[in-house]
């Protein structure tokens, strides 16, 4: 659906390119995660794909044609969730959604979306009186207002409590199940693990890794077993290779003879991969 080659972009007035020649693509029906630490160019990339930023180098192909060759009607099938709320603060939630729906030739039903997001009761409140989380949810609803085929979401769960984050994530995977395509920008690994079919890691304007979450975990993980056990007053650790485990007598001795505290296999979390790939380390 999208194919990006050697994309480069520099903000006017900046010395260095913010996006330094990235290439990636994603297909219809996919949730493509675009991950990276803050300030690394995720939002910039989304703005390039949605034509908010224009003077880029390289090529963006959308449905087989150069993105630049389309007129504005391209946007009737596109929903964009921005990193900040793009809402009239003086209008109510309902007035906002109706205003935006009127910009499009086709539209979604407002009631089910607001009900699902827990905003139906507040539909006649002005957005100025909304909390940060309510604004985020309404901003997400806004992205769905034209019943799009492709969604761009910039950190859709940031600032949401776990319950509402859950609802938003369910709505995103529901959108995909109905044939939708999603470009999802985030720095929250929980979102990625649950939602994304494939992910790209971006750091310093370059793509460091593209793969599925599962492959990444296998590739970056270690095939090993780690045990912690009690030795009198002390806590001892032992590590065993998983491939030779069944012939390893020491392992079985420990299992039978010691009081175990923990057992872990060596597959990594996406959090750890994130730190490894992007070079943004928690300590050191």
């Amino acid at each position: 659906m999208f194919k990006v080659s050697d994309l480069r972009f520099k903000y006017p007035g900046n010395k260095e390119d913010t996006i330094k020649g990235i290439s990636f693509g994603f297909d219809k029906g996919e949730i493509f995660g675009f991950l990276g630490p803050s300030g690394m160019g995720k939002s910039t990339t989304q703005k390039l794909l949605t034509r908010i930023l224009k003077n880029y180098g390289g090529e963006i192909i959308y449905r087989g044609k150069d993105l630049k060759s389309y007129d504005k009607s391209i946007f009737k099938d596109v929903g964009v969730g921005f990193e900040m709320p793009v809402l009239f603060t003086k209008l109510t939630a309902m007035e906002n959604l109706k205003f935006y729906r009127d910009l499009y030739p086709k539209g979604a039903k407002i009631k089910p979306i607001l009900e699902r997001l827990g905003l139906w009761e507040d539909r006649n409140k002005r957005v100025a009186a909304f909390s940060k989380g309510m604004k985020s949810r309404l901003n997400f609803a806004r992205a769905l207002i034209n019943d799009p085929e492709i969604l761009f979401l910039d950190e859709p769960t940031s600032g949401l409590d776990p319950t509402n984050a859950r609802i938003v994530k369910d709505m995103i995977s529901g959108f995909r199940e109905n044939g939708g395509t999603v470009f999802l920008t985030t720095h929250l690994m929980h979102d990625v693990d649950e939602l994304c079919d494939r992910v790209a890691f971006i750091a310093d304007g370059e793509i460091r890794e593209i793969s599925s979450p599962k492959n990444l975990k296998l590739r970056y993980g270690k095939r090993e077993i780690r045990l912690e056990y009690r030795e009198g007053e002390r806590l001892e650790k032992a590590v065993f290779d998983m491939d030779t485990l069944k012939e390893n007598e020491n392992f079985f001795k420990l299992l039978r003879g010691k009081d175990l505290v923990t057992i872990h296999s060596g597959e990594t979390t996406l959090d750890e991969i994130f730190i490894k790939v992007t070079g943004v380390k928690s300590d050191e």
């Binding site: 949605t50 793009v86 809402l87």
Partner: peptide, 11 residues
């Protein structure tokens, strides 16, 4: 209110 961004990505 950043409305112009949203208009930018509308038809």
């Amino acid at each position: 209110d950043k409305i112009l961004y949203a208009v930018e990505v509308s038809p």
